[in-house]
Simulated scan of single mutants.
Amino acid sequence: MMKLLYAFALSIAAIPAAFASPPATFTEAKVVAKQKIYQDQASSAMGELYCGCKWTWVGKSGGRVDPKSCGYETRKLQTRAERTEWEHIVPAWTFGHQRQCWQNGGREQCVDADPTFRAMEANLFNLYPSVGEVNGDRSNFNYGMVSGVSPQYGQCTTKVDFQQKTAEPRNEVKGLVARTTFYMFDRYKLNMSRQQQQVLMAWDKQYPVSAWEKQRDQRIAAIMGHHNPFVTGERKWTLGYAPQGAGAVASNVPVKTVPKPTLASAVEGGSVIGNRNSHVYHLASGCPGYAQVAQKNQVAFGTEAEALAAGYRKAGNCK
């Protein structure tokens, strides 16, 4: 096991600079998360997020739960109970509803038109393998304390209150989900209720950063290019904390007011053109592929910084 961990650590440290960039889509993020963050965690003592179950990898990013490893018992949905799914610790519904694109067309509209949403959806800090059934039961509920609910998943101590729409994760990850939530709300300038702040601040204090959480942060930072400052101790969430919004790469204006990007308008505005399929961007000067991106695949950015923040990388043939 020690040799495996050492080899995995070396693979993370040896990530080429060209690949040390955020994944551009949720689909890509799941594959990267498996290969670079959780590959050796399927059989670890920590297990998946909500119940600590071990699992075996299946396909590019899926997994099959070992219920005996954690005493898991299916509540209702056997198919989802048997597989791992990628949980957004801060649900896509939660951050999506604070974007105008969601009001104009839901998640699909946000994925298509909002680079900030795409960055949030694919953010590796916010992803963690979990038992599919618990992931589904948690839905888009806020985290909080749940009382008066009998064990729902055998020996798994995570509880879901469907009436109050609240989920209480097992103690082992309460600090991790609190600091991840702080990070997401801070990075993308989201609004958090006073009650949610108080619950998460209490968990942050009661459950300090663990050795695994530090290691997880280091692995993710090698790909994302930055750490979670609430894990490293650079920032501390206090009641009324003002999020900085470092990851909000695009103005949150109604999608209907944003003209469909075309090559002509991009050239006139001197914008950067991205290819939504390859997630490669091209400059008007020095990039041969600038005029070759099909109109249906074009994504216009005002600057290279915007393109990079949205998870795009510069075309390799640019001079």
Rank of each mutant, 00 (worst) to 15 (best):
S11D: 14
W57K: 06
M1Q: 11
T116R: 11
L4V: 12
G52P: 08
I220W: 03
S150N: 13
S210G: 01
C156R: 06
F301Y: 15
G132M: 08
Y183S: 02
Q98L: 06
I273Y: 01
G136S: 13
L190M: 13
G105T: 07
H279S: 09
C110P: 01
Q78P: 01
N140Y: 12
F26M: 01
T303P: 01
M120Y: 06
Y50F: 15
A211H: 04
T257P: 00
C156N: 06
K36R: 14
Y72H: 10
Y38R: 01
K256T: 12
N277Y: 11
N317W: 01
W237H: 08
F125S: 04
C101G: 09
Y312H: 05
I15D: 05
R219P: 00
A222G: 01
G240M: 12
C51P: 09
V131F: 05
Y6D: 10
V249S: 11
L5W: 07
S11V: 02
A248C: 02
S147D: 11
S11T: 11
Q206Y: 04
Q164I: 00
E168A: 09
N228G: 04
Q163R: 13
A305Y: 07
P129K: 07
N228Q: 07
M2Y: 03
T84Q: 03
C53N: 04
A307C: 05
T166C: 04
N252F: 13
A7E: 14
M2R: 08
K319E: 13
S61V: 00
T84D: 03
N252E: 05
S147V: 06
P229W: 10
F8T: 01
R194G: 00
A246S: 07
P254T: 10
G132E: 08
Q78I: 13
D40I: 14
N277D: 15
K256E: 12
K54V: 03
Q215R: 10
L190V: 00
L239K: 14
L176F: 12
R216Q: 07
W212E: 14
A211M: 08
Q155G: 00
Q152C: 06
R107F: 06
R216N: 05
P254G: 10
K260Y: 12
E168N: 02
A248K: 15
N104M: 13
K3M: 13
C287L: 12
M145E: 12
V32C: 03
I37Y: 07
Q109Y: 01
N135P: 01
G247V: 04
Q98V: 05
E304M: 06
M224H: 08
T180M: 09
H97Y: 10
V249R: 02
Q206V: 02
W212K: 00
V253Q: 12
R75W: 14
Y188V: 02
V90L: 12
N191L: 11
D137K: 04
S150V: 14
K30W: 02
P243Q: 07
Q244W: 06
E85W: 02
A20M: 01
N191T: 14
K260C: 02
D161E: 03
Q155K: 15
F230H: 03
K189N: 15
Q196Y: 07
A14F: 07
M184I: 13
S251E: 13
Y128N: 07
W102F: 14
V255D: 00
E304F: 02
H88R: 02
Q39K: 05
A300S: 15
A33V: 03
T84E: 04
A202N: 14
E28V: 04
Q39W: 10
V58Y: 09
N252M: 11
V258F: 09
G269N: 15
L49R: 04
G71T: 08
Y183P: 02
S44K: 08
